[in-house]
Amino acid sequence: MSDEEIIQQFRNQDTQSYAFNMLVRKYQQKLYWLLRRMVVDHDDADDLLQNVWIKVWQNLANFKAESQLYTWLYRISVNEALSHLDKKKKRFFLPLGDVEAELSNKIDTGNQISGNDLLLRLQKAILTLPEKQRIVFQLRYYEEMPYEEMSKVLDTSVGALKASYHHAAKKIEVLITRLD
């Protein structure tokens, strides 16, 4: 079922639950991994994913098809993750670097984490990037998202996103080469 059909069915009271269920099944994994990469911890990612779908449920009827549905879903997810990290900083009065250090520590000690050493080191290298650069890198490297779509998700110009991705990739390259 296409996104347009799902939206149509969601607007019909009789098929609303069915359409929403379809939508969750279609995008839950993509959104989960996006959130998980940003917050590392499974429980945090789970909470955020639930919040994202609650917001989708509350606002999908008013969704204007000015952008693609998945762009809208990504946008909600990115905002949810950013506000979660922001709250974490405010709650513990932590500077940004400390939150990233905590996330990096979770890669070593957290639950639901298993992988070879190289993969873990790559994740830690990604966590050294500034927040916005990290999101850009993840959307491009893992999601293989075109810059034009990313521009709609992050509300940033294509040129700025290209520059951000280039800086991020070069930094990661230096870090993983140094580690070898």
Partner: peptide, 28 residues
């Protein structure tokens, strides 16, 4: 941009609990 990075597999070191994605829609 990053020839060494491009050789990496894009796998994730993270896992999820069993049947997480099967039960998630019901949870929501």
């Amino acid at each position: 941009l990053a020839p060494n990075l491009s050789k990496f597999k894009k796998d994730m070191p993270y896992t999820v609990p069993d049947a997480y994605f099967d039960t998630f829609p019901m949870k929501i």
